[in-house]
Design a binder for these strands. Structure first.
Length: 971
RNA sequence: GCCCGGGUGGUGAAAUUGGUAAACACGUAACACUUAAAAUGUUAUCUCUUACAAGGGUUGUGGGUUCGAUUCCCACCCCGGGCACCA
């Protein structure tokens, strides 16, 4: 029993005093300021910035912040230039709803909440560089959010759409697909409605492939580009929902089509005429079949302008629901422009060798005269609609052209891409039979199972499929079909997509299609289990190989045919074309609410949508009297005449501002870039600074952001990369999700359950260092664990033990080699574990070391300082206090992180286990690297082992050096 | 239904990636110090064979591979998450 009689009475550990003292000192000495120091390697560690709610932080919030703080402190000590910033994401509904209730500007609530949040963060002793603080609601910040939107707009990635969108009747705003969970508004739980409303939409689908592929991309050293939890990558993969399959054409059976007489309009191209190329031939072929054909001579074929040609076609051609528009080369561009101006949809569009992108002129080709006289903007959704969803794209002969533009165009238009060889390059022969073949009307299906094509026994269209309307005259049970379509319209999205309910449908009697694989004619049905907005809105039904088709077939007594599966690729080659579909939808980007970034756009009667000039940014949110959403699809901003009515930046005419605002996710989609250069007035981020800090090395936050923030931010980042603002293809190299801290009752911490634990109280009672140690020690960092105030005493005891250990420090002390070894082993373990974000085991190894040191009579200053340094990230206040009491003048947090001595972490004696028939029967100590033979000899002589060996025959001995000897004996 | 995690003492968990299962901590019990309590320290604490000793069993269940499996393989059960009448 050791005596404590001679020990000095220690200074009492008073966390209240020392924590305040050190927090002040740190702020004064500016040790946490980040600098672009070319001498040092950078480390950017980022927290998902909080929404400053009125309730303040609970004890769960800081868990992630403490983790980044631990990492950031170690990296700083290791000599990195560390960027560890914090800010606030303050646009959004809670502040706005509070504003509605109290009729105060939400900014006031935001400012108050931010102040409270900062106080709460500061008492935990986090090492943020507050000079870089940002706030998404600050006009100096959202100026750049608006700037990014303008760039998206200029690149055609922001467009207006009138498609039905998700509308939340409670929050009175539209929602993105990502904001809908199980058919309900993610915020308030109200079932969403589908409403056709004019919306701004971002073309995130253009990035679907890159968003997907880069999840699994490798760096040049073979490691993953994204060091992310597999579960989050998987969520994103599921959300993007790529499926590879085929588009297969099922032509209408001749009984269906023989009497359909169409009205064909053929538009020639640049330097062409109605008498050139294949046009006269095609005209006569179609007329032979009884169709009406118009091939107008377009004005100024050698020096065409869009306005002249489009107007000419609109004036001189007749359009109705039986019209099929065929455009060759530039004529196809004219055709698409014509479609955008028609009032009613036509029957179909055939694009022969054209593109919707002006860059197809290429570097080598000389600019054509129409380069400037055509506007290369296309509303592809509108074109799709106006062409009744019936579009065929015939490939050109130039491989590069096809890969680059036509694949894209046909994907965007959901068109049939008909990959054929023209007889002459660019379809310039006098006869082009492939064009004629492409005109035969057919139903396109999307399938991932082309291998089952011989099992098709019927076809199902979505009730909304554009063909259904045009086929009505040919359907004998017309009334029944119309009734079914009407009924389907009335159903909500939730009812419609409920997989459990019984399938219903109606046959389109009189309509049949031909299976291209076996030329068999099969019936066509409509059913609401087929969705209009996925694939082509049409399904080839294979009841023998698809459960849904089987259910349907059984109910309506349709044949079920077992077949042997074919080779997928062969079937695609023979009967269809390879296609890729995504579940990801474009990002509905406007909200009909007040508290968000105004969209920097102006609507002018003459000029259309005009972007606000960059020099006029930011477009500031005006003050309003009522923040109440209108519910009409207009935001409250629409009522502020002074703000809304402006001059058009182009023609100076009367015009109106866009009154929709951006969604909550806008500001957070790029904020990590602004921390690099938060005060820059000339640019979003200075490119030198961006190159220094990018990418984020470690990003920590909640897993609930997997398919929203983390997809949106990756999308914007890639876009910013494309326009040269960012230098990396991904924003966050390494991501780690924080496991939630639950209430003591095991439920989510919430005011509602009365189980919220306030960090201020915990810090006041136990101290910030104890809170930090406790939260890091609770369990694996990414795991959800219930809070337990009782268990905090363990962390507190540990902090106190470290404090008391300082009594044993003697300058004259000579350390036992075992003590030195333990310190060095712990340095290695703690360094590795912090890098691996395994904070719980780092602390456990520190506890083991402290317990060990506690057993020693005295400790040298040298060893104790090493211990304090590796404790510093976890208990920064106590570490700095004890460090300075040892006579150090500078903060421990800017001292150099200890290196372990590899020689000191090796044991020269190891414990060798002896197993007999797989059971541990004894052990002995042996020098490291003792030979196998000697280990075997020694093992056999261990008394407890000998007992098991007597009278038994040894059958086999396995010796693993430095580990064990395993002996197998007979009966 | 498909896909990703995960399942270890009373509790949070650990296990060098195939080599002594339960480190570290909470809780509990006994003891020491104390008038007492708190604090602190010491000891014990997976489970069964009533206790010592000596053994047996044990990482969701059942099989397999192996000298040896918490770890690898197969099947199943349960919990958490993502997607979903997506063709």
């Amino acid at each position: 029993m050791k005596s404590k009689a001679n020990k000095q009475v220690p200074k009492a550990y008073d966390h209240l005093i020392i924590e305040k003292k050190w927090q002040k000192k740190w702020a004064k000495s500016k040790i946490y300021r980040s600098k672009e120091d070319a001498e040092k390697s950078k480390y950017y560690v980022l927290d998902m910035f909080p929404y400053p709610s009125g309730e303040g932080l609970h004890v769960g919030h800081p868990k992630g912040y403490i983790a980044t703080d631990v990492v950031s402190r170690m990296k700083r000590m290791q000599g990195h230039s560390v960027l560890h910033p914090m800010g606030f994401d303050a646009f959004g509904l809670p502040a706005e709803n509070y504003a509605i209730k109290t009729r105060t500007n939400p900014l006031i609530a935001v400012q108050r909440n931010v102040k409270r949040f900062k106080e709460q963060l500061e008492i935990i002793g986090l090492d943020y560089d507050w000079t870089r603080e940002i706030n998404t609601t600050d006009p100096a910040y959202y100026r750049w959010t608006q700037w990014i939107f303008l760039q998206l707009f200029k690149k055609g990635l922001a467009f207006e759409s009138n498609e039905p969108v998700n509308w939340c009747p409670t929050d009175k705003t539209v929602l993105a697909n990502e904001d809908v969970e199980d058919g309900r508004c993610e915020r308030c739980g109200t079932p969403v409605e589908k409403r056709p409303l004019r919306q701004w939409v971002l073309k995130i689908t253009d990035y679907a492939d890159r968003l997907l592929n880069d999840l699994d991309a490798k760096k040049s050293d073979g490691t993953n580009l994204l060091d992310w939890p597999e579960s989050i990558k998987e969520s994103q993969r599921n959300w993007i929902g790529k499926s590879e399959g085929a588009i297969i054409d099922f032509p209408f059976a001749s009984t269906t089509t023989e009497n359909i007489s169409a009205n064909y309009i053929i538009l020639h191209g640049f330097e062409g005429s109605a008498e050139s190329n294949f046009i006269p031939w095609l005209k006569s072929e179609l007329e032979k079949k009884g169709h009406k054909v118009t091939a107008p001579e377009l004005p100024n074929a050698f020096n065409p302008t869009e306005d002249e040609q489009v107007d000419f076609v609109l004036k001189n051609c007749h359009f109705d629901e039986n019209t099929v528009l065929i455009g060759h080369s530039l004529g196809a561009v004219v055709a698409m422009k014509v479609l955008m101006k028609l009032n009613e949809p036509i029957s179909g569009l055939v694009i022969v060798a054209a593109a919707s992108d002006p860059s197809f002129f290429g570097e080598s080709a000389k600019p054509r005269p129409f380069h400037e006289t055509f506007k290369w903007d296309f509303d592809l959704d509108l074109i799709k609609k106006q062409a009744n969803g019936n579009i065929a794209v015939l490939s050109d002969t130039q491989e590069e052209f096809r890969a680059k533009y036509l694949n894209h165009l046909s994907t965007q238009l959901d068109a049939r891409l008909i990959e054929v060889r023209a007889k002459e390059e660019h379809f310039c022969a006098l006869e082009e039979p492939e064009i004629l073949a492409a005109l035969h009307p057919s139903v396109k299906v999307f399938t991932t199972r082309p291998d089952t094509i011989f099992g098709v026994t019927y076809m199902v269209l979505a009730p909304e499929h554009p063909y259904v309307k045009s086929l009505l005259p040919k359907i004998s049970n017309r009334n029944e079909v119309v009734e079914y379509i009407e009924k389907a319209k009335l159903e909500t999205e939730m009812e419609r997509t409920d997989a459990k309910r019984e399938k219903t449908g109606v046959e389109l009697k009189g309509i049949r299609v031909v299976n291209p694989a076996n030329n068999e004619s099969v019936p066509v049905w409509i059913a609401d289990y087929v969705l209009a907005d996925y694939g082509t809105g049409a399904v080839m039904a294979v009841p023998a190989h698809d459960e849904r088709d089987a259910d349907f077939a059984k109910k309506y007594d349709l044949p079920i045919r077992e077949i042997k599966l074919e080779d997928k690729d062969e079937m695609i080659r023979k009967f269809g074309s390879k296609t890729i579909k995504y579940k990801l939808r474009d990002w509905v980007f406007s909200r009909q609410r007040y508290w968000g970034e105004p969209m920097p756009l102006i609507h002018c009667a003459n000029c259309g949508v005009v972007p606000v000039p960059e020099k006029d940014l930011p477009v500031k949110l005006p003050k309003v009297v009522s923040y109440e959403p209108t519910g009409t699809g207009e935001s409250p901003l629409a009522a502020i005449g002074k703000w809304v009515n402006v001059k058009c930046p182009k023609c100076k005419g009367k015009s109106r501002r866009e009154t929709n605002t951006m969604p909550q996710w806008a500001g957070s989609s790029w904020y990590y870039l602004r921390y690099m250069d938060p005060k820059n007035k000339k640019a979003l981020v200075d490119s030198k600074k961006e190159k220094y800090w990018a990418p984020v090395d470690l990003y920590i936050g909640g897993a609930e952001h997997a398919t929203r923030h983390l997809i949106y931010a990756r999308f914007w980042h890639k876009f910013l990369y494309d326009i040269g603002v960012t230098s990396t293809i991904e924003p966050f190299s390494r991501l780690q999700s924080v496991g939630l801290i639950m209430g003591e009752d095991g439920r989510k911490m919430s005011k509602r359950f009365g189980n919220v634990v306030n960090p201020d109280e915990v810090v006041a009672r136990f101290g910030a260092d104890t809170l930090r140690v406790y939260e890091m020690f609770m369990g694996p960092f990414d795991q959800q664990i219930a809070w337990s105030t009782d268990s905090m005493v363990g962390a507190r005891r540990f902090v106190e033990k470290v404090w008391r250990l300082s009594e044993k420090v003697l300058s004259s002390a000579v350390d036992d080699i075992n003590i030195i070894k333990i310190i060095h082993k712990t340095i290695k373990k703690v360094t590795d574990d912090i890098n691996g974000l395994k904070f719980n085991t780092a602390i456990s190894s520190l506890m083991i070391a402290v317990n060990e040191l506690d057993r020693a009579e005295s400790i040298s200053k040298e060893q104790f300082q090493l211990l304090l340094q590796i404790l510093a990230p976890f208990m920064p206040h106590v570490a700095d206090e004890l460090w300075s009491s040892l006579g150090n003048k500078k903060s421990i947090h800017i001292s150099s992180w200890p290196e372990f001595d590899p020689k000191l972490i090796e044991d020269n004696e190891v414990n060798i286990i002896v197993q007999i028939n797989g059971k541990m029967r004894g052990s002995f100590m042996a020098a490291k690297d003792t030979s196998k033979e000697l280990l075997e000899e020694t093992a056999k002589k261990v008394p407890e082992v000998m007992k098991w060996l007597t009278g038994k025959a040894i059958q086999k001995i396995v010796v693993v050096p430095n580990r064990l000897v395993s002996i197998v004996v007979g009966q």
